[in-house]
Each structure stands twice: as structure tokens, then as C-alpha cells.
Design a binder for these strands. Structure first.
Lengths: 134, 134
DNA sequence: GTAAAGGTTATACTTAAGTATAGAGTCAAG
DNA sequence: CTTGACTCTATACTTAAGTATAACCTTTAC
């Protein structure tokens, strides 16, 4: 199997080369093999992993949290119980996020409907509706 | 109606006082009334607004995006059509986020099930499953 | 009426998450 | 066999989103 250079990985994963090295320093990516001359040698797993990271970021996870998510996999066979609770906590997190997003969406839909009816939007209590669950 | 000082608002909204002033500079909060002596005078609307901001942040919106969301309300009666399209775009955003979170959640649930069955979790393809939609 | 608590501005510092640059070595195409 | 594209490390810069500090003024509580 052919190895990928950092430039190829960067292109495929749509990130800056520096970002890859940064993720390595932050231990979000494992230290890759090196060629004789010191070039990093990647496989397409790294591309997948980077895409996962970027994607999770867009969902509002910090790199630290993402590291935890990734660690779930790595250490799974080591400490199954703790993996399970971490995963369950994350699931809770995610459910709350989903609920909030759904409320947000609902409110925006209401706003759109208001717009369609050309009424004054002071009837659309966007702020109130978007408030966190009290 | 009694006004709130910045300290009260900070306490009620659970944020740092500096954060409130920072939001004002960033125009996420309107410039408040001032007392004779220059103290900011708020109403509880500001508390709501700050809570909304913090909440939206947790969902992965940047302050800039949040400013747009908030602007929907302010300018609604001014340019209804453009508000509508902005809102619709945000709804799309939100739907995508929800979908991703749901996939993420599904995968984590699978991981939990694996843990429960005490199998080796190399069967749980967390990375693959959590990948962005291709 | 005087401290303590809380407000004001302005400026500087911090953290997360990159991004850019310099100076040097390596690879591959003509 | 050299030139251009690529890589390496190390260091420094940037942006977003706050936080902290100094030096000063105002309000409140005893």
C-alpha cells in the first residue's frame, strides 16, 4: 500500500498542512511513520480521521472533546466500563444539542411564516423562543 | 420599572461582567441607557438576550452568526424578504447539524452496546460511522 | 461621612485553533 | 544534475472570544 505525504492528506481532507502538524502536536492524530529522510507517511485513515475532526467541530465540539471521542475507540478494550460512561455522557450532550437545535429551527420557521404573511414581525418572539430551557 | 446594573445582569445571565461589555463592543447587545453618573441601565431583556447568545454558542454558532440571528428580529419589518431567506438558510444549517448529531449519537449508542456485550470494540467502527456525509 | 462594593474606561493578557515564515533538506522531471 | 515543488523544524503571528488589571468615580451600608 502506497503512503500519502502530508500535502496529499491536506488536499484530500481539505485542510492546511500546518493544521495537520498542529493536530499531531495536540495528539489528535497519532505520530505517523517516517520515511528515511523524515517525511511523514500517512494512510487514508488519517484523511478520514481529519474529516471526522472537522465535522465534529462544526457541531460545536472542541478539539479537547473530540480527542475524548476519538479516545473512546482507542482505549475501548482497555477500560470498557469507563468508555461506556463517557459515551453515554456524550450521548446526553448530543441529545440536548439536538433538542435545542430543534427549538431553534421551530422558531425560525415561525419567523419565516410571519414573513410570508407580511405581518409585522414583532409578533415573532424569536428571542423568547430561542431561550435555553429554564 | 427598575433598571438592572451590569453586575446584576452578569449574575442573572451567568456571565462575566467583562463579557457583557465585550458583547456591547461587538454590537451583540445594544448600547444601554446610562444613569446620570454613566452607569449602564439594563432591563431583563438583556438577560434573555445574553442567555440566548450563550445558548446558541453551545450549539456551534459563532458570535458573528448569532449576530445575524439576532438581526433577523431587529430588521424584520424593514426587509422582510431578505429576513426570510436568511432564516431559511439558517434552518438548513440547523437541519444539517441535527442530522450529523443524530448520526453521531447513533454511533455512540452502538459503541455503548458493544461495551455492554464486552466484545472487543474493534467491531465498533466509530471513526467510519462518524464521518461527514460523503 | 467614610469604607466597601460596585461601576467606568482603557489597555493588556489568555486560550483555542489555527496560519505564516524562515531556513534548511529532499524528491522528481526535464 | 539542476530547478521547482515539496517536506522538515522552530518560531512567530492571527483571530475569536473572552478575562484581568489599573486608575479612577459612584453608591450603599453602617
Amino acid at each position: 500500500m502506497k503512503y500519502l505525504t502530508i500535502g496529499k492528506v491536506a488536499k484530500q481532507a481539505q485542510v492546511n498542512i500546518q493544521t495537520i502538524r498542529y493536530y499531531e502536536r495536540q495528539e489528535l492524530l497519532p505520530k505517523p511513520l517516517r520515511s528515511e529522510s523524515g517525511y511523514r507517511q500517512y494512510t487514508s485513515d488519517t484523511v478520514k480521521r481529519i474529516r471526522f475532526i472537522k465535522h465534529a467541530q462544526e457541531l460545536g465540539f472542541s478539539l479537547k472533546e473530540i480527542a475524548e471521542l476519538l479516545a473512546l475507540r482507542v482505549h475501548a478494550d482497555v477500560a470498557c466500563e469507563s468508555v461506556k460512561s463517557l459515551a453515554e455522557a456524550k450521548i446526553q450532550d448530543i441529545e440536548l444539542k439536538i433538542q435545542s437545535l430543534q427549538r431553534m429551527k421551530q422558531t425560525l420557521s415561525t419567523l419565516v411564516t410571519c414573513c410570508e404573511h407580511r405581518k409585522n414581525t414583532s409578533d415573532c418572539p424569536i428571542l423568547e423562543a430561542l431561550e435555553p430551557p429554564s
